[in-house]
Structures are given as structure tokens and as C-alpha cells.
Design a protein around this nucleic acid. Structure first.
Lengths: 225, 225
DNA sequence: CTCATGGTTCGTTTATGATCGAACTATGAA
DNA sequence: TTCATAGTTCGATCATAAACGAACCATGAG
């Protein structure tokens, strides 16, 4: 009837609680099997199967058979961005599913939020950058200052290549465990991967937890205090 | 049950066809009355009222009473971004509501896509920039080259201020009338408003059409050919 | 081969929510 | 005041789709 892409279809696909749970679980970036997703969503495996079929049909998730398992991931980066944007919108309006954050202390301390650092350490990083005048946050619009650019470059990140990317450089992302902001955007991603490079942190294989070594955490707190 | 913002709620809100139609109509940036939105969505005014109430409750639309009319706009920039992202996702998957683009020739030629230029002229602009090596588009990741930066600066746009914004600088946005890419992102916005400043184009009050003057179109085609 | 486990398909039940008619309130015009 | 238009509320109807039990196919282990 009207012009335009069928926004309603993807909306309704994401709009079902079971599917939303599955997609949220897949935001970790890990590949999950159909049964894992079923328990994540709290439905039987039959229902999960039908949901996944629908998501697959419009290319929101990407299946991959491996033996008798079928692993699912988000189809591409764009799907992740849309989900991230929707989560931001929901969080900023206080629409959280439950008031309790992650129970696992490790998750509460440091975890990945899609692809950047969240949890207490993520909030620490963000607050430190703002407090020292490396970032400015004026009503949600986050930008990097001169001194911030210097700091980041010295830390071994090539800002120029980030700038040209498709993604915003800086983005405040509301943390739904801490209810505080942390740093997303391409800079957030770059920082996290730099932490991995430096051996400061590694990603837990079984969850979204990010585990800092003792030395890593000390250095982290020194640089960004 | 699970951690995280209630992505399902906004999903289902956007997921209803009637509401999706209304929101799409509001993407023009204009304030529309309840009855206008009802006819846009193809439902009676009662149903529209109940839909708008729901959208209002979670702060997706912003009402404003004026006499006996009630005008609605999108609540903020963030809502627009989410919708834009979802439209991109849908369009890239070929999920268009109808195969026919806008019937109005003016709309087909040039119109606003939220806040940047779309339609044939938008596609012309994008293609020109890419063909002359001012933009590079590698699998959806769009970035501006050295010569592109020079061109844009000479055209009177302050790139530095755009770079620090929350939004990606360059973004390819699929045009659902032409099924071709045009330029979104903060650069796309800046270009369109520069066209207005220069008197090349004006926005039609009654629709999303962008109307170029004769001289404006000639200059436009010279610069970006 | 048999058995166990992972996933799919089918059919039925059930609940949610979109829709609209009818009756209502509110603003403005004559 | 009366009339008209804009919007809301309520209630009843109806359709869609989520959920699951049961039976099915596919892969791997012994």
C-alpha cells in the first residue's frame, strides 16, 4: 500500500519474546545450537525450531550444520547494529526485562557488549576518559577531544582508519547491569581488541565474560584512572 | 528471565503493520495529526488512536496538542536512527512492501530519506562521488578519500565537526525506489542542507519531495558529474 | 544392526491483540 | 446555543501466530 521497505516484518520478527531472547543471546557473537537457543528463550525445542526457521528465512540468522548440530549466528554485522540500536533505545527508556543484572560476578565485572567492553570495567573506562577530558559527553553525543586522540594513538590505535569506517567512532552505550554508560562505537571495539593484543585480557570461551589478568587489570587502571 | 533491555517490546511495537506505516510516514520529519496518520496507515481513527497511545507510552512518538488537533513527531533522533537502520536491513534483504516506488514523479526524482537526499538525484550524487574516486564503497563500508575530503571542504562543509558527531560520516543507504545506493550518514545530511543554503533546492511543504531549481540542478550536475 | 541424541514437521489448542461500531469528551465556529 | 470536527474510550468480534505433544528424519556411537 505504501512505499518503503517492510520494516514491520523485521519488527515483528524481533518483537516476539522468544526470538528476542535468542537474538540477544546471539549478540555475544558466539555460535549457538538450536537447543541452546531454546533453553535461552525458555521454550521447547519444537517452538525454537519454528522460530529459527523464520529468522533464517529473512536472513537474520545464519545456520551452519556441523555433524548433527546446527549452529546459529547473527547473519551479518548489520543485524548486530540494528539490535544494538534497539537495545540502546529500550535501555534509555528504562525498558529492562528484569531489574537484576547478570548474576555471575565475572560477567558483572567485565563482559562483552556485542563487541566492546561492558560491565564495571567498561564503566570505569568510560568514566575515566570523560573525567580526564579525553571524551566529552553532551546529552548522549559523545566525541573525542584532542588529548583523547593523543592518548588513543599512543595506546596503539590508528584513529584514521576508524574514522573512515561505517560506524560511529564514539557512542555511549547504556549498561543494563550497572545502569551507567560505557563506550561503544568503533573506538570501543578497537580498545577491547587492543586489550587482547596486549595480553591484558582474554575472552572466556563459555560466556561473554572478559577475564583480565592481574597485570592487565593493574595496567588498565593506571592508564585510564 | 534474561538480562537485557526489552528489545521485544519495541520490536513488537514497530512490528505491527499499521504502526510501521505511521512511523514510516513520520520519518519525513514532519508533524502529522492523528487522522493523517490513520489514513497513512489505512485504519480507522479509533484504531489509530489506540496505536498512537501505545507508541506514546514508551516515548517513541511525541505528541503536541494544538487546538483540537494533536500532532505527532518521532520522539527523538535515536528513534529515527533505529527506524533508518531497520529500513536498511529490510531493503538490503529485498523486503519491500510493494514493488512500485513512489508514484509522484517529483518524489521519484528527489526526496528526503529521513534527512538526506534520496531518489534519482541522490543516486546520481552517490554514483558520481564513487566514480570520481571521492568515495570508496567496499562491500557496504563507505569511506571518503583524500580528494573527496578536498571536494567537500571546498563545497563549504566542515568535515571536522561532522567527524566528531555520534553518527557515521558516510553510510550507503539503499534506495527502495531505484534499488540503488545513495549517501546517508552525517555527510549526506550536511550535503543536503548545503544545497538548501545555496538555494539549489527547497523542500516541498506537503510531501517529502525535494525540488531543485533549474540553475540548482545544473550546478549540482556540474559539481558531482 | 540398535540405541541415543539433535532437529524438523504436523495438527490442535489457546491467548493475545488488532479492528471497528457506538457512545463519549473537547475544541472551535456560526 | 447549536453544529461540526478531532480525538478518546469501551466492548465485542475475529484472526493470527505462539506453544506444545506426537510422530518423524538424520547423524553418530556402540
Amino acid at each position: 500500500m505504501k512505499e518503503g521497505p517492510d520494516i514491520a516484518l523485521i519488527g515483528s520478527l524481533i518483537g516476539d519474546p522468544a526470538r528476542a531472547n535468542m537474538l540477544t543471546a546471539l549478540m555475544s557473537g558466539k555460535a549457538l545450537t538450536a537447543t541452546e537457543l531454546a533453553t535461552e528463550a525458555g521454550v521447547t525445542i519444537q517452538t525454537a525450531s519454528s522460530h529459527l526457521k523464520k529468522l533464517e528465512a529473512v536472513n537474520i540468522v545464519q545456520p551452519q550444520k556441523q555433524g548433527r548440530h546446527k549452529y546459529f549466528t547473527l547473519a551479518d554485522e548489520e543485524v548486530g547494529s540494528v539490535l544494538e540500536a534497539m537495545m540502546g533505545l529500550a535501555a534509555r527508556r528504562g525498558l529492562v526485562r528484569t531489574r537484576t543484572g547478570p548474576k555471575d560476578p565475572a560477567l558483572r565485572k567485565a563482559r562483552t557488549c556485542y563487541d566492546h567492553l561492558a560491565g564495571e570495567m567498561g564503566v570505569f573506562l568510560y568514566d575515566g576518559l570523560v573525567a580526564n577530558g579525553h571524551l566529552t559527553d553532551t546529552s548522549g553525543e559523545v566525541s573525542i577531544t584532542q588529548t583523547g586522540q593523543r592518548l588513543v594513538s599512543e595506546f596503539g590505535i590508528n584513529l584514521a582508519s576508524l574514522n573512515s569506517s561505517n560506524r560511529p567512532l564514539c557512542k555511549s552505550c547504556l549498561d543494563w547491569s550497572a545502569r551507567r554508560s560505557h563506550l561503544g562505537g568503533s573506538l570501543g571495539v578497537a580498545l577491547l581488541s587492543r586489550f587482547h593484543e596486549l595480553g591484558w585480557a582474554r575472552r572466556d570461551k563459555a560466556s561473554r565474560a572478559v577475564i583480565f589478568s592481574e597485570n592487565g587489570e593493574r595496567s588498565f587502571r593506571e592508564v585510564f584512572a
